[in-house]
Amino acid sequence: MCKGLSYLPSSCLEKAKEMRVKLSHLAETHHKNKTQDGRILQDLETLLNSKSGLQAFRAFLRSEFSEENLQFWLACEDYRVSPSNLQKTKACSIYNQFINPDAPLEVNLDAETREALLSVMDSPCPKTFNKAQQRIYSLMAKDSFPRFLRSHHCMEAVKAF
């Protein structure tokens, strides 16, 4: 179990504080530049809307064998803007690829959300995956994104600016 930060050597804690200050400073500096890629560290939404940020985040998730969350989120974004005549086909594809318990890229969703999706697969609409997509986004924002900020993938992306 986690014993808290008090068990870490003070040198590690100081190093972590220094890194956080540097990352915050970089984020502020890039934010002031008002460039899309410069705001890579601001939040997950900004990262996902940045081509280079998205590439760095994808590489990080791939290294952790958890790229399916991002793939699902992107598939939902694509689905939302799809013409209505393609929605049923795309909805079935997303369900089979990410939601079905035997899916090759199964994402971590609660049973209630899975059941709700299964019940609307016959007549999907543009908002069909909104709740599931939001749950996966929250998972990435709370779990993957903070780890990404501490990763070498993030450091490399920052250096590229």
Rank of each mutant, 00 (worst) to 15 (best):
N85H: 13
N85M: 09
L86R: 10
L86P: 00
L86Y: 12
K88P: 02
K88D: 05
T89Y: 10
T89G: 05
A91Y: 04
C92R: 14
C92T: 06
C92E: 10
S93Y: 06
S93V: 02
Y95G: 12
N96G: 08
N96R: 09
N96P: 04
Q97K: 14
Q97H: 12
Q97P: 04
F98Y: 12
F98N: 04
I99C: 07
I99K: 07
N100V: 10
N100R: 14
P101D: 15
D102L: 00
P104Y: 08
E106D: 00
V107A: 10
N108F: 03
N108Y: 03
L109T: 02
A111K: 13
A111R: 11
E112I: 08
E112M: 14
T113M: 12
T113S: 15
E115C: 14
A116V: 05
A116Y: 03
L117K: 03
L117H: 02
L118T: 05
V120Y: 09
V120L: 13
M121H: 11
P124E: 13
P124Q: 13
P126K: 13
K127L: 07
K127V: 05
K127C: 07
F129N: 13
N130Q: 05
A132Y: 01
Q133D: 06
Q134H: 10
Q134A: 12
R135F: 13
I136S: 01
I136H: 02
I136C: 02
I136Q: 02
Y137S: 12
S138D: 10
S138W: 03
L139T: 03
A141C: 08
K142R: 09
D143Y: 09
D143Q: 14
S144A: 14
P146Q: 07
P146K: 07
R147A: 01
F148I: 01
L149I: 00
L149R: 04
R150A: 06
R150S: 04
R150W: 06
R150G: 02
R150Y: 05
S151Q: 07
S151G: 09
H152S: 15
H153M: 06
H153G: 04
H153E: 15
H153Q: 11
M155S: 03
E156P: 02
